[in-house]
């Protein structure tokens, strides 16, 4: 054998910050290369906006703009629930095909593999939320500019938490896709309905209101509604941030623990 070049691999020590950045950039590449995938994943929220919105207008007896100011913030939260809540399936597919295993052999901080992926969720959330807002504008929807910025940031934090939990579910269910989707679907719809995204829960049964009171999504929805209507200092905003931050902290903690055990 004649070697014309020699191995030059350097020693790379895991660094959480640098590795998280590299994982984040990698995860963002497919989004940047194929932005239309973000639009296609908006179909479900748009169906709710287009078909459920008119029903809400008819039921409430109010005008379209007023109804949208109540419903659109909920649809923005729905984007996170449907999109980010399912993002673990990508990791699960990579676990099944072998791509995830390759990253486990790379000299990366294990935590960065989870945190980088979770942070990536912020980008599609912001793009999709802005698209929904843009679609609703011709129908009379108006968002307070500063409130919108704060609302997007809140969605981002909420998305990091939910994304991390989705990845944790993928790591826990390993190769069993049916289990991932079974658990995910069993949780997402109750969380959605019991957060008051689709219908107000004020007139609902006591048990529903009790569950909604411990559902972090309820607080995020209420905060979004307050922010987008310009009530930046409302108590709902504070509670929304507390709920989103708590979810992010729990999600990242659970996710980091799961990926460190991954092999």
């Amino acid at each position: 054998m004649t070697a014309t070049a020699t191995a030059t691999a350097r020693i790379v020590r895991p660094q959480l910050g640098r590795d998280t950045w590299n994982v984040l950039i990698r995860e963002l590449k497919p989004v940047v290369r194929d932005p239309f995938s973000l639009i296609f994943s908006l179909v479900q929220p748009l169906v709710f906006l287009g078909l459920f919105g008119p029903l809400l207008v008819a039921q409430s007896g109010g005008d379209l703009a007023g109804t949208l100011s109540w419903f659109v913030p909920g649809v923005l939260v729905m984007i996170v629930l449907f999109g980010t809540g399912a993002t673990g399936s990508n990791l699960q597919y990579e676990m099944m095909t072998g791509s995830h295993e390759r990253t486990l052999v790379a000299p990366l901080s294990r935590s960065s593999l989870l945190i980088g992926r979770a942070l990536k969720e912020v980008a599609p959330i912001i793009v999709q939320a802005l698209l929904i807002v843009a679609i609703a504008l011709p129908f009379g929807f108006r968002a307070h500019p500063l409130g919108l910025v704060a609302g997007l940031a809140l969605l981002g934090v909420f998305g990091i938490g939910l994304g991390a939990l989705s990845y944790s579910l993928a790591l826990a269910t390993k190769q069993r896709e049916w289990l991932f989707w079974g658990v995910q679907q069993s949780l997402i719809f109750p969380l959605l309905i019991l957060s008051g995204v689709l219908l107000p829960l004020d007139g609902g049964p006591a048990w529903m209101r009790a569950v909604a009171a411990v559902n972090p999504v309820s607080y995020v929805v209420d905060a979004e509604r307050a922010l987008l209507t310009g009530s930046l200092g409302a108590p709902e905003v504070l509670w929304g941030w507390v709920a989103a931050a708590a979810l992010a902290a729990v999600g990242l903690a659970v996710g980091v623990r799961a990926i460190r055990r991954s092999s």
Partner: peptide, 20 residues
């Protein structure tokens, strides 16, 4: 970390992520 820096690994599955 030293081992991981100095080795290349090709597992049984496909190493590339499907969307990349």
């Amino acid at each position: 970390a030293g081992v991981r820096s100095r080795i290349g690994y090709v597992g049984q599955g496909s190493s590339g992520s499907f969307a990349q």
